[in-house]
Nucleic acid binder design. Sequence first.
DNA 1: CCTTGACAGATAATCGATTATTTTGATAGT
DNA 2: ACTATCAAAATAATCGATTATCTGTCAAGG
Lengths: 245, 245
Amino acid sequence: MVPDHDGAFAPTTEDAPSSSGFLDDGKNTIGSQLASRLREAIISGELQAGSKINLDKARKTFNVSLSPLREGLARLISDGLVEFEDNRGYRVSSISLANLEEITTLREEFEVFALRESMRLGDVEWEGNVMRALHRLNRTERDAARPETLERWEELHREFHLTLISGCGKPILLHFCRLLLNLNDRYRRVFLTRTSGDRNVSQEHSEIAQGAVARDLDYSCDMLRQHIHRTGTNLRNHLATKGIL
Amino acid sequence: MVPDHDGAFAPTTEDAPSSSGFLDDGKNTIGSQLASRLREAIISGELQAGSKINLDKARKTFNVSLSPLREGLARLISDGLVEFEDNRGYRVSSISLANLEEITTLREEFEVFALRESMRLGDVEWEGNVMRALHRLNRTERDAARPETLERWEELHREFHLTLISGCGKPILLHFCRLLLNLNDRYRRVFLTRTSGDRNVSQEHSEIAQGAVARDLDYSCDMLRQHIHRTGTNLRNHLATKGIL
DNA sequence: CCTTGACAGATAATCGATTATTTTGATAGT
DNA sequence: ACTATCAAAATAATCGATTATCTGTCAAGG
């Protein structure tokens, strides 16, 4: 605890990392922090799809040096949100109808597969996590007028889908699904501020989750597939409506 | 600036096009070249699975500075061959029985799915590419005594599997499959210098390819699934035999 | 006119040195 | 001996400056 004797200074290893006694859980290197900020900027649409990322400009915008900037961008490449070409720099991944349709198709295949495996292998803790994620999601309201609620909802929604498949015991598969979810969320964040009127998304989530913990494999998988498919269809319509592509 | 290109994962310049010598390699950046060299070093087992990658040592070994070294390593993270932790550096991804089994399972799911889509959507050019890849593979002999023939065979084998599914029109899916193939190849390179006696791998490849161009969906998919499964089983046995894990 | 090539400005890649963090090793107190 | 604490060494992260590459523009030649 408190150092008592002399010792010049006593920088008790855990020195104040930030003035407000902030929790120093994960945000460590500048590169990491940048990756988070950039990811949010891309998924939220703040950085336009397909646009070039000028290193000098970005460096000034974020007040960092090249090294951590490249570090952060490198991670977004793993996430599929940024593309890179030798000597030609980075650019935000483009969006397109074909891209959206592929994402939807792959989510239908992989996420459903992962859910089935989770139901087959998941333990009681997994069940608990699913119910908690469902509850938290359903208790959070989405108000198009207040962007911060949208952001919060997106986070919980993402968390729900990931929790649902977290019992599958397949790290690589989870990585793929997380990636697809990332890509998909960008489309929703940009094009869909509210759900289509004929859907009750909360109920859809509940049906999937309850079927899952009841180990009703075919039912739950079918519900999830439809859920994903409907979202894909909605997004496609909005894309077409807004004249993109 | 107007978005123009395809969506995420469109081109992913990844392959080392070293099939015909390496005279004109003055183009790539040091980072790119390093990525290739490191990838080969990891897949071939030269860099042991699970081992730490000391930046200083690597810097001296490869005679480069930190920046391109990090650049190269970052790409291998995308490939799943290297892991990274803030402030704790890089290490070669570990191998394990569970990991091998997941890779095999996912290949059975994804690669077969991609093959089915290729047969559904592939054009005549795709058919031609498949037959060419098959021919080149089958005409190349594998001699355990001469490592360079193994390397060459691996390259053509990889090429064959990728060509087979290249007609699916799904860049992201292809990216996933390429990644899984990478991971799988490391196991084969390290543990399997020759095929199990009861297999005729050339014939297996031929059956898959001919079924594919004949658009015999169920047959070809089934053959591919068995092909992948057998390789997985073989590898598992070798892993167990050699006392690993 | 159109093509070609060279120049200049913009941008990316790399380097060497500096700063921050983690790990190791030694010391003192119980 | 055992543990806790601090200092030194090892290692990773970052920076500022330099070098290499690309891109657009403009003039000379066809």
